[in-house]
Design a protein around this nucleic acid. Sequence first.
RNA 1: CGCGGGGUAGAGCAGUUGGCAGCUCGCCAGGCCCAUAACCUGGAGGUCGUCGGUUCAAGUCCGACCCCCGCAACCA
Length: 539
Amino acid sequence: MTEKNMDKKFFVTTPIYYINDRPHIGSAYTTVVADALARAHRLRGDETFFLTGTDENSQKNVEAAEKAGEKDLQKYLDNMAAIWQSTWKTLGISYDDFIRTTEERHLKAVERFWKAVDASGDIYKDTYEREYCTGCEEFKTAAELVDGKCPLHPNRELEIVSEENYFFRASNYRDDLLKLYHEKQEFVQPVSRQNEIRNYVKQAMGDFSISRESKKISCGIPVPGDDTQRIYVWFDALINYMSAVGYGTDDKLFKKWWPASLHLIGKDIIKFHCALWPAMIMSAAKSDELLRDENNNALLPERVFAHGFFTVDGQKMSKSLGNVVDPLELIKEYPFDVIRYFLLREIPFGEDGDFSEKRLAGRYSSDLGNTLGNLLNRAVSMSRKYFDNKVPTLNADDAKVALANTTWAGAEGLETLWQSVDAYINNARLDLALEAIWTGEGSGLIAANKYVEETKPFKLAKEDMEKCGLVLYSLLESCRHYAWMLQPVMPDIAKQIIEQLGQDYAVESKKNFKELKAWGGLKPVSSLPEPKILFPKML
RNA sequence: CGCGGGGUAGAGCAGUUGGCAGCUCGCCAGGCCCAUAACCUGGAGGUCGUCGGUUCAAGUCCGACCCCCGCAACCA
């Protein structure tokens, strides 16, 4: 793994969610990934901005409000947005900002953006008789239809729309987009998606209709200078990533944060994020210097990472099957850290995955209880037993090197492990980072448990207290390292581990990353409180 | 010819540039006793979907085929 020269800035986003229902495990997944990455970057000292929010200008919300019997749309939106916010709070999501696309700052950003695209000559008016899919919220070209229906929503009747709309000349940017994919391979992640988007741009992408007649829809942002038209929801939604950091309201703030480091999305909205969005920016940048870098290049997001979808116990998650997983129900059974761990560890990032409570229970008892919890517990218990309730007294450097002929490699091994964890984090691969923390050769949790067997500190306690102290110290110190490696994923568990090691979490978490990573952070002779079981057996 | 994903040990998955088939869980047998009936060691278990091709060598490259999954509504 090559260590990238990352900016000291990390700006990560989730999609803005439709609020026609409460959050489920899928939206929680995206948000947890973003949260863990944000926490990881904060821990590493990067200036971090984590944005999430709600997409409120969609006709879907109007339909949902009607269904809920709420006549006042704004009231409905306010209620739902509050539910989303409080759900994220309950789940420990550490977002820095929550944007709602009905907010004033967003309207201003959209207005400025629209004007810029218009000034670049990429907006034109045209009358088209076109087929609009209310499922996708987009117009379909003949090439995209199958048997005269949208292949994604074959049971929805296509609306035949004949009206004068504004169009965005996305076709102007086809070559630029292809060049972007070619020159910046990491722009579209995972790699398996790159072909898909390339083919789309090459073969299917046309101009986008970006407005509807006001009289036909009951929500949406008015087109600047033309009250008879409202902006199509996707065109306004994407701009949220900019409006939240001051586009249209605070140039200085915008310059600080834009471009986004990483857009996290689901695989269903790749087209919008990897094609439409960069094309929009390329266009606006021609007329708005705020959107250009010093070389006059458009400031595009650095990376878009699309993850897969869940099945539940192998089945599609659906309301009619009654297997929609509600994260708020789940945390009644498992601490949220456990669910975070499961989601991030179990599902290869970028692939589809399966959510199963049986496997969640398996991960809980095996990975967390038997391996992580047990290691901490046995190390602390022995130290307390043999060293008067304290971390063994010694010079920490003496414990750097593992005893001979062991599979666990001591301080050197941890250093290697840190390197791979850091590299995985830089690539947004938390799944691989977690895997490494457990199975890392000569350095992971599994190897550390082996080390106990190989050195038998409980035997050494009767024969060689000095050696016993060295072994126990290195075990305790490694637990401290594991705690910090895991902190972005399991912030609460990490805190508990640090506290069980007799450290003051508030003090520790103020240390800089280099210091945390260095061997010897655990002070010898500090006293060890009575250990509490981190992951109790479940009935 | 709608789009996309996938078929590797009982389950879930890794397999980078082709070079002795791996990981976690489960199962069987031992060991240990510090620890959450936890931990460690050993073992059984795979003709890597099928058929062809390229090659000294193919899970890995090429071709054809078979099968599975997602794409109405909820929805990342």
